[in-house]
Design a protein around this nucleic acid. Sequence first.
DNA 1: GCCGTTTTCGGCCCGACTGTTTTCAGTCG
Length: 588
Amino acid sequence: MPTNQEIATTLRRVAAVFEVIDSDFFRTRAYQNAANAIENLTISAYDLFEQKKLTEIPGVGPNIANHLDELFVKGKSSHFEREMKRVPAGMFGLLGVRGIGPKIAYRLSKKFHLRFEKTAKNDLLKLIKENKLTGMEGFGDKLIAKLKTSIDNQFNKKVRMLQSEAYPIADKLISYLKAIPLVKTAQPLGSIRRRLSTVGDIDIAICTNSPSNVMPEVLKYPEISKVISQGEAVTRIKLKSGHEVDLKIGRVRQWGSLLQHYTGSKLHNISLRTFAATKSLSLSEHGIKNVKNNKIYLAKDEKEFYKKLNLPYIPPELREGEEEIEWAKENHIPNLVEISDIKGDLHLHTSFDFPTSHDLGVSSVREMLKTAHQLGYQYLGLSDHNPKFNDLSVSQKKKILDKRKLWIRSEKQEYEKTVKSNKIKILIGLEIDIRKDGELALQEELLKDLDYAIVSIHSSFDLSKDENTTRIIKALSHPKASILGHPTGRLINQRDSIKADWLRIIDFCKAQGKILEVNASPQRLDLPDDLVKLAIRSGVKICINSDSHDVNQMANLLSGVYVARRGWATKNNVVNTFSFTDLLKMLK
DNA sequence: GCCGTTTTCGGCCCGACTGTTTTCAGTCG
């Protein structure tokens, strides 16, 4: 079945046809809106089709829904196919290259008979080298050179970077900017500020009342390799590291409007402007314009901006154009969980040396307690991997686990000699593999000695949706299995999420009081935010853990807090904000 | 083609930047 992404691509292609052939701007936009909505769905459009709920997707009306029905039933839609045949297929191969939109793609593919999507980029490159574009109306030397560069870049296209990669780059540049005398402040925008798990471009806002004096200073930043484009309000630079950064300049009095505009998301802004239009207001980075008298209201911060629209402040993590504006109108924006609410970390790997199924940690319990103290925690859960399942006898494993327990206790006693107060509680658990058949990789008699268990998939990732669902539910059925660790198993940009029926798993967790982990390891961030939202709406609790193998990683838990916030979590949804007594009840 | 506590008809988010022109088209976010 076509994925949401594939459907969105098809709809965009049909939209492009309407744009270049029919110049039907609004029909074009209707298709683009539908594409955006489907791309941002948290469940598959196919599932909605099965439930006959396609028209509940905002932007999908009866016509597009009918075409999608046909697409799902027959594997293709005659309408989409027919529309796309009106242009040379090479046009679709050119779309997506930076600087090539529908109009240019159409003109080039038609003039040079680019009939194949797959070879279109190469064909165009060849035409450029043979100077075949020279002399075409509207194609000057600069534009042709730009197209060549864009296609070259496409061939070594980069994947979206991790938030943990992008943030430090932005942070370093921001420190530099803040040190410039006329700069009032600076801050990241876009997906960095909304704390998405991955980031495309790095956007930064600079607040100053003297843009013309400040910009030359900004461009002295030693990491810049070249200035890609420069205008009064926006400058795009490339860093020596290869990262591209957009710098937006805003004045103090319009700072709120600027931040709001460039924080996005695009869909949030579109929804917000549609809402503003009902109040005869028009929104832009410059302010809020009353279209009746053309008066512009300047917002110095975002609170003022939203207040002018009669809305409460909407945290950046929620600005995805889903239902946050509806909720804001009702004044129902939740108080999202914060890092200061976190009272402990339940997924930590110690340096206790024994034959585990996976990697050991490198830090002692003593070091972890010291770090926990600095982080203001009240409890820790130690969850080394289970002992090797096949290579050791049950009695050997028991010996190992008993020895581990003694070591943990002695480490704790040693640590407590060094501090006056603040006794941090310790839970002795394990992270246990979920085997292919859903059995836990630890024998029953050893399980009962644990305070709690995190159960996780570390193998057989490629099972079917049904097999994985059954396997996870079976594993969670054990009374000690309180937490499902890094549930989807994804490694961002490296390994896809496992296939599973998350609605069924969430229902099971709700019924049985099981907890879903939000693993804060930067390449995991798992549960992903969209599933966090589904889980929380269903009343399932989450636990935000760092999965540290080194005390230096314990502060990573903050990244998990951002994922939880993007999933609309309040502290009541997160078990490791609870008191130790209440936590124990949840782990039961 | 979609949508509706102004509307089932008549609207549909808003602006920056580049390049090619000389007032605008195309693309991007």
